[in-house]
Design a protein around this nucleic acid. Structure first.
Lengths: 228, 228
DNA sequence: CTTGTTGTTGTACGATCGTTCAACAAGCCT
DNA sequence: AGGCTTGTTGAACGATCGTACAACAACAAG
């Protein structure tokens, strides 16, 4: 009974576990306090560790922030890829899964927007953020392009192989502009919803995107190839 | 000859002139250095004044930043309003003027995006920024809504002669969703272009927006009122 | 030229920032 | 039980932050 309390003052963690905890704390601080939350002391307090520990697992603050950015990015893209992969092989179903993944949590979250905005503000002046972006963004681009390519049939002519029985030799839809427009619509709707969640429902956003794509294919049939 | 050099060490300015100069310096620092440029010393150096002067013309830093935000906002909106007003009375011409104003300098500028992004990051945690936003944003909303309102009925009438009679009683297009979608497209395209100006030309962005609006009116004629 | 007003300067202060580092101790090994 | 590795602590440092304030000086008025 007079035994000294063996209660440890802290618990040692494997480096990778601690790294992930610090990354999670960084994101949480960003959600809560915005750019001002990006301080060593705020983050370490959130993670329940001392100030010195961060520099033991990360060479400096910028590397931690870049790691957090990379984590958010890859998490989100992996979620969308999984949703699309689970949707089967139907192009329309895959598009639907993609859109539903885009317009639902954790992507569609006002807090998440606050986090993104801070990262965007850092993008221009932090090479580490730029690198993290480049390394993860490619996955998103190829995912979206794959969905669009299999959705807009004539584009397969350019790829050869699969689409053997292509009717028109001329590409009906400008795939490039289609991707640009869809991306803009996705980003813009996502932005709008996060800023003011009450103005429209996620289902309406999906509807708008599908209407946009439907217009592209219909345009093909009626007056395609009109581009200057 | 031996006269002491009467060169003044500084020049006094009327308060309003100095205020505007400090606001301009703030924006310039934001363009150059992002969020890190938002320091009293950086801004005062950019403006060519001493550190103490800012607090003589602004009660604190946050007020200066909010004033800069208000300035950018009203400047941009006033530019668009002027462009639309100068376009005459034709709804299509007014839309065209609006889009051209949107997708051209000084709105369409990668540096400007960097500035906006910093402000967005501050928005959630600064009441002053929120107030500045609320006071200026209303002008934009009413401008866009006016353009859409005068455009959609007319568009409908123009297409109405194509075999189907125009019915003014039932709103042909969901004006609310139209505004949401157009805003998303505008924001998204603007964002995309600022991030990677090489991917498409401003004229193509305008084309995409007009195609979007054309789709809305066409949709009305073919299968309108299908909304759940 | 003298005076008064006030825009302007620049130092100073306390707070907070990111980072360093010597000391500590938790947990595994023998 | 004792040694060893190493994750962890927390004080300390210099730099920089926003702000306050007393002294200065530009310029108009008399």
């Amino acid at each position: 009974m007079a035994r000294a309390a063996p209660k440890p003052r802290f618990a040692r963690q494997p480096p990778e576990v601690r790294r992930q905890a610090l990354i999670a704390a960084t994101i949480e601080c960003l959600k809560r306090y915005g750019h001002e939350g990006l301080s060593i002391r705020t983050i370490s307090a959130q993670a329940g560790v001392s100030v010195g520990l961060i520099n033991h697992h990360f060479p400096n603050k910028d590397e931690l922030v870049a790691a957090a950015y990379r984590h958010i990015n890859s998490e989100l893209i992996a979620g969308m890829q999984a949703a699309v992969a689970a949707a089967g092989s139907s192009p329309r179903a895959r598009l639907r899964a993609f859109l539903e993944s885009w317009f639902s949590a954790p992507s569609l979250d006002a807090d998440a927007l606050a986090v993104w905005v801070v990262f965007w503000g850092l993008y221009r002046h932090s090479r580490l953020i730029q690198r993290a972006h480049r390394e993860t963004y490619q996955g998103y681009v190829s995912l979206l392009r794959g969905i669009l390519a299999e959705l807009l049939p004539t584009e397969r002519a350019a790829h050869g192989g699969r689409g053997r029985r292509v009717r028109a030799a001329v590409p009906a839809v400008d795939l490039r502009l289609a991707a640009i427009g869809l991306t803009a619509l996705l980003d813009g709707l996502w932005l709008e919803w996060c800023l003011e969640p009450g103005t429209f429902r996620p289902a309406e956003a999906i509807e708008l995107c599908e209407a946009w794509l439907a217009q592209l294919t219909r345009r093909n049939g009626s007056r395609g190839g009109q581009r200057p």
